[in-house]
Amino acid sequence: MSEPVSKLESALRAGTFVFTGEIGPPKGTHIEPVIHEAVASLKGRCAAVNVTDIQTAVMRASSVAGCKLLLDAGVEPVLQMVCRDRNRLALQSDLLGAHILGIRNVLALTGDHTTLGDHPQSMPVYDLDSVGLLEAIVRLESGTDMGRDMKGNPNQLDGSPRFFKGCCVTPCAEVVDPQIIKLEKKVAAGAQFVQTQAVYDPAAFEAFMRNVESLKVPVLVGIVMLKSAAMAKYMNRSVPGVVVPEWIITRLTEASKEDRQKVSIEICGQLIRQMKSCCQGAHLMTLGWDHCVPEIIAAAEA
C-alpha cells in the first residue's frame, strides 16, 4: 500500500475513530472569522476540515481559498468539489492548482442544482458527474489528463498530483439501493473514503453499513447539528434523504431556549455513540456552531 498522502488518510488507516469538521467560506471577502473559529475549535480535534464549494448553490468565496488559509493556519483541509459549476477543463485545472497549493484531500460531489440557490438563472454544468470527477482525479494522478494530443495519445502532465479522494452517500434515502449502487461505482472510480449525508436513524445506518461492508472504504457518518425543533422540521420537509425522528424533535421542543445548544450537543453525542461501532468516524456539520465541536467530541467519547 502506498504512503498516505494526508493526515486524514493516515488517521483512517490507523483505525482510530476519526472526526472531521466543516466550514463554509463567506459571501464576501471577510474570511478571517471563519478561519479563526476553525483554528480555535477544530484544530487538533478534527483530523481534517471540509471547506464547502458554493454550498446549496448560494454564491460564496471559493473552497480553494478557504482550504489554503486553513493549511496556512495548520489545519488540514478537505477540498469539496461540486460538478455543478465547472466543466472538465476547469475541474482538472483547479485540482492541479489545489495540489500545487498543498491541498491533499478532495471530496467529489454532484452539487445541489443551480435553481435551489441564489443565482437560479445560471447554467447548470454537470459536464462530469461525481463518478466522472473521481475518474478525472485518478487520471491526473496517473500523469495524464482527460484530453488527447494530436496523435490521439493521452496528454502527459508535467508533474502529477496525488489526493486522498472522498465521496458522499445518502444512507437513509427512502429507496437506498440505487444510492448503494452509485456508491459502489464511486469506489470503483477511485473513492477512498465516504462522508455521509446527515443521519439521525442509527438502525437504518447500521443496515446501510452492512450493505456496503464489502466495499472496504472508511465511512464517516454525517452529523448535522439541529439548532431547533423548527430546523429539524424544516429538514424533514426539505432535505432529501434526511429523516429526523420524533424523539429528537420532542427533546428540542422541550428544551428551554438557553438549554437548546446543550441539548443539541447531547443529541449529536448520543447519535455518534450509537453508531461509532459500525463506522470509522463522524463528519460534524455544525453550521457555524464550531465552538460546540469540542463538547460534541467529548459527548461522543463519554
Partner: peptide, 30 residues
C-alpha cells in the same frame, strides 16, 4: 442534472430536488 451514472443525493421521496412535481429520472430508470 443530466447525470449518467445514477441518482444523486437530491432525490426526495421519489421526486427531484428542483421541483416536487418532477419525478427523479434516475429512480424511474432504476
Amino acid at each position: 442534472k443530466s447525470l449518467i451514472n445514477g441518482t444523486c443525493g437530491g432525490t426526495n421521496n421519489g421526486k427531484c430536488e428542483v421541483n416536487p412535481e418532477m419525478e427523479c429520472g434516475w429512480l424511474r430508470i432504476y
